[in-house]
């Protein structure tokens, strides 16, 4: 009974995090130059890494979002999702601590923003909540309506005597 409920909760969690990733990636994908600028504004990565990371991020976001929504390699996808949220939380906390005021560039945009300091706590709270939701999905053995169960099925349990 409990597993049935958590299975449906897992589906809900997958749709929420996956939906957020797809939205965040889809907004950025058409304008990778802006994504690169947003990454650069954090002043965290060495110059040579800024460009590949900025260009790759929207693609990875969309793929992680899609696998979560579809329930494909669910636990691994949820772990990647959790790691990305940890990275974003570190990034935002670090610009906040260094007194740099930038738009987090989470959903497009990015770069200098004079009102940024008041937004950081809410952005960190949002990413923290999504981190927990991702970890919940990674912790569940399986969720409802996942492509995983269609594709991979289950290794048959040894039958009784």
């Amino acid at each position: 009974m409990a597993t049935r409920v958590t299975g449906w909760l897992g589906l809900l969690a997958r749709l929420v995090t996956g939906g957020v990733w797809i939205a965040a990636g889809a907004v950025k994908l058409p304008d990778p130059a802006q994504s690169v600028d947003a990454v650069r504004a954090y002043q965290l990565l060495p110059a040579s890494l800024v460009e590949p990371v900025g260009q790759l991020l929207p693609v990875v976001e969309i793929v992680v979002g899609a696998t979560l929504v579809l329930g494909l390699l669910t636990r691994a996808s949820a772990l990647v999702s959790a790691l990305l949220f940890v990275a974003f939380i570190i990034g935002i906390a670090s610009v906040w601590a260094r007194g740099i005021t930038i738009d987090c560039g989470c959903f497009g945009g990015g770069g200098y923003d004079p009102d940024a300091a008041s937004k950081y706590p809410w952005e960190i709270a949002r990413d923290g909540a999504l981190l927990l939701v991702s970890l919940f999905v990674a912790w569940l053995p399986s969720t409802r309506l996942a492509l995983d169960s269609v594709l991979f099925g289950r290794v048959p349990e040894p039958e009784g005597p």
Partner: peptide, 16 residues
């Protein structure tokens, strides 16, 4: 393959 393909697409779209 999708990610690598997407990366090249993304690079091509970055005209900065």
């Amino acid at each position: 393959v999708i990610i690598v393909g997407g990366y090249f697409l993304s690079r091509a779209l970055d005209t900065s």
